[in-house]
Write a protein that binds this DNA or RNA. Structure first.
Lengths: 339, 339
DNA sequence: TATTTTCAAACAAACGTTTGCGCACATTTT
DNA sequence: AAAATGTGCGCAAACGTTTGTTTGAAAATA
């Protein structure tokens, strides 16, 4: 029965017309008479004709596939972001080729290669924590395949990216705590190598200054984001001559580690604010009093939209300066309603 | 500079030999002299030649892409499973086209269509909760494109699938509680429509019988898995004439809801055992004392392996009865080390 | 020397589709 | 009546690669 899919050729043969006529008829080309057009379309549906995408992709040199490389789908941020990416992709007739780097720079490099051999039309990347060189992305620039980075942005120039406004998010978080009466606010920041850590620090400082308070750098500590690392810096915090009454943490996990540690010391009364707003905090018994939502879905959506725009932009005339998309998605402080 | 990728033709022209010779030289065909082979390979690497996958895929009618449709990546089970799928796929030179149904049957149907037009070589599916018809998968059978189901298996015949042994998992869980001295064990089961609920029940019964205990059906209650639903059935449990001293729950979320509820009633001392072994329980303050691990990574891996085997199986001679892979991945009771 | 075998490389078809060009016919404009 | 314009369709090339068949020459056999 349905052995091989129907081709345009077969339709042509049955109707005793040329392949080109069939092709044009199906694509509503202007130079085809109404009658033949109808005949072709009728038979096409009867035979369940579906254009062979591979042939078209090959012919046009377009795959209609976008590659997505991200660190970890088990991180809620990314699994939500991918939904946004997917939705845009499907709406705009692209499909998503997925790969996780598992925060391994070597694997990431390999995956970028794979994406290249698969000839994706564009690439969406959130770089791994351990990535320190970026030449593998340069290849894409040479091949004129657009790359858009999101959330985890490499510190290089001339790239497209979408990221959340961490500075502003932190500003609001600190401001919220200040309004609540706190005067000694600690911050458990991430590794200093991350751009994100820097931005958070700036937000912190901005909030202090705009409230006419003095900024005390010793209240900001760097942390490797592990549980042991968090405990270590928490101890530093708690032994600080100005013991913080509130702490802003790099993410929800750090917040949980820190909170667990303080409780194990039977210390109460420190307010925590964190990032990411993970769904799991709904299941927690003790939660941060607020969390900065980064809207991963929106971020993924935006990034995918930009990428597909770039793919379909008119051929960049040589000489024309290329513009880079640097989109910042605003974040929002979500105040927990759980007491 | 590097405008268009190098083709086999260009190499042929430069070396003044035919395209076919170049092709065969690159593919180590036996009938090519060593000298020409070397010359070709040398030039190929110099020019950064990479075969145009689209052309090859088109020519061979193979895409080397497997489609994966699953309900929700934000569910830890699936985000872990996809890692297993991915790893196998990449190792065996396939790429993964991903799509989430978000547990919406209509969307799932649409995605299956998309996968068809993209001409994937095979399909990996975990069906949505709301899917009740299955014709959209039949099309693939007609097109001779293999489909492998995993975890969420549709109740139809003649399919390939990979699933975990829930019956056995429950058996072990109940057995564990019995060995611990419990004699009145409740079970919060899922909706009766799910195959999974049925299997859990069987496991429960089997454990009771093999311990020469009487099975009391009223100790098993069905639940819609929501928080309110869980609280409701928990109340039923707690008011039962034989109040359970231990409870087996359908999954970790239900366990959390139930535990929170009992604690809010200031009831202590009920042992909980649940499924899934979510990473989040590491962050919880009160956790189930054990959880049935379903090895999603392994399950994903297995499913992908089977699928790719099916894709590459020798042409099924018409007449030969097709065998169906029904693989059951054993589950394992993980006993929590958190006191 | 005449014939067969082997090796190395070329030729050409094929995959399914799009598209520039051209041809034949019909209709309208000079 | 001739020329220009328009309409509807076919021809053939092109995309990059693989692969069955063929060719040509050198080497081995008779």
């Amino acid at each position: 029965m349905s052995d091989k899919p129907t081709t345009i050729k077969e339709i042509a043969k049955i109707l005793k017309i040329s392949v080109s006529t069939v092709s044009r008829a199906l694509n509503d080309h202007s130079s085809i008479g109404l009658t033949t057009k109808m005949r072709v379309k009728k038979l096409a549906t009867e035979l369940n004709y579906e254009p062979n995408q591979k042939a078209i992709q090959f012919l046009q040199g377009k795959s209609h596939i976008i590659g997505v490389i991200l660190p970890e789908l088990s991180e809620s941020f990314f699994s939500t972001a991918i939904s946004g990416i997917e939705d845009v992709a499907y709406k705009r007739n692209y499909t998503v080729l997925l790969a996780q780097s598992h925060d391994d720079a070597d694997r990431e490099k390999l995956l970028v290669e794979k994406m290249k051999t698969q000839r994706v039309d564009g690439l969406l990347v959130s770089v791994s924590k351990t990535t320190s060189t970026y030449e593998h992305f340069e290849i894409f620039k040479k091949l004129n395949i657009p790359v858009v980075f999101f959330d985890r942005i490499p510190p290089i120039k001339d790239i497209h990216y979408v990221a959340s406004n961490l500075e502003n998010g932190t500003y609001e978080a600190v401001n919220f705590l200040l309004k609540k009466g706190h005067r000694t606010i600690g911050m458990i920041n991430g590794p200093t190598t991350l751009v994100a850590s820097h931005e958070r620090k700036e937000g912190y400082i901005k909030a202090m200054i705009s409230n006419r308070l003095k900024f005390d750098p010793s209240l900001i500590v760097s942390c490797d984001l592990s549980e042991s690392g968090t405990i270590e810096v928490m101890n530093t915090m708690l032994n600080h001559r100005r013991k913080p009454t509130a702490i802003v943490t790099f993410n929800d996990y750090v917040a949980l580690f820190a909170m667990r540690h303080t409780r194990s010391l039977e210390l109460e009364g420190i307010d925590f604010v964190s990032y990411a707003n993970l769904p799991i905090i709904n299941y927690m018994d003790y939660t941060p009093i607020a969390s900065v939502e980064q809207f991963p879905y929106k971020q993924g959506k935006k990034a995918a939209d930009i990428l597909i725009d770039l793919i379909n932009r008119p051929k960049n005339e040589t000489g024309t300066e290329q513009a880079y998309f640097n989109v910042v998605v605003e974040s929002e402080l979500i105040i927990s309603n759980i007491k």
